[in-house]
Design a protein around this nucleic acid. Structure first.
Lengths: 103, 103
DNA sequence: ATTAAATTTCTATATTACTAGAATAATGGT
DNA sequence: ACCATTATTCTAGTAATATAGAAATTTAAT
């Protein structure tokens, strides 16, 4: 459950790209029902192959989930992984901030 | 105060590297008084030029601050920027998570 | 079987990032 | 002035990532 340094770096590096961050935001707005790849593409207006590449990255990092509905592929955000990223920053990187507030 | 998409991506991309994430963690452990570049180098055991390069990245992203004490350069983490990153993830990327909990 | 739609994979190119040795700059002591 | 220490900048080689057109794959409909 707790992220290793390497794993956290991998997640942040995937979030560290404007297009991928956009994808995450769009999927968060959409919610749990998810969004088809084609609809993400319409919003972003980028070539399919480029989008596909970024989606693969996000999937490999565990940040999104994909399932097929006949012809189309539906993507949804994996909140658990985002939470892990948030908790990593809060616990590993902001210890001093907490003690500062406490003391 | 609120991060743009591009700015957030830039911060995450800087956090998205194992060495830089280590530097941040070391500086967080150290606290506000900061740590000399040479001491960071001892902990990481990497060439100075490599470290210097990563520190420059972190500084440009606003994640660390540096000040000179005679011969040495002291680095400290910029908690405000880390907070911005956390808040970005919480507010921009976990809206649905919040409403899920609420409803 | 043919066609259409959705998406990926292949392929190539371009761009950016990482690494680290060598040279340089800045500071302080003798 | 000279030397030692600290850290950066220069330089270059290597590796990783991004982009996107073209071809291929998957699924369904006729």
């Amino acid at each position: 459950m707790k992220l290793t340094n390497e794993h956290a770096a991998e997640i942040f590096s995937q979030l560290g790209h404007a297009i991928r961050l956009c994808i995450i935001r769009i999927l968060v707005e959409t919610g749990e029902q998810g969004l088809k790849v084609g609809e993400i593409q319409k919003e972003l207006n980028i070539p399919g192959s480029t989008l596909s590449h970024h989606l693969l990255h996000l999937k490999n990092a565990g940040l999104i989930h994909q399932y097929r509905v006949s012809n189309t592929l539906v993507c949804s955000v994996q909140y658990a992984k985002l939470d892990e990223a948030i908790h990593y920053l809060q616990s590993e990187c902001c210890v001093r901030e907490n003690t500062k507030k406490a003391g």
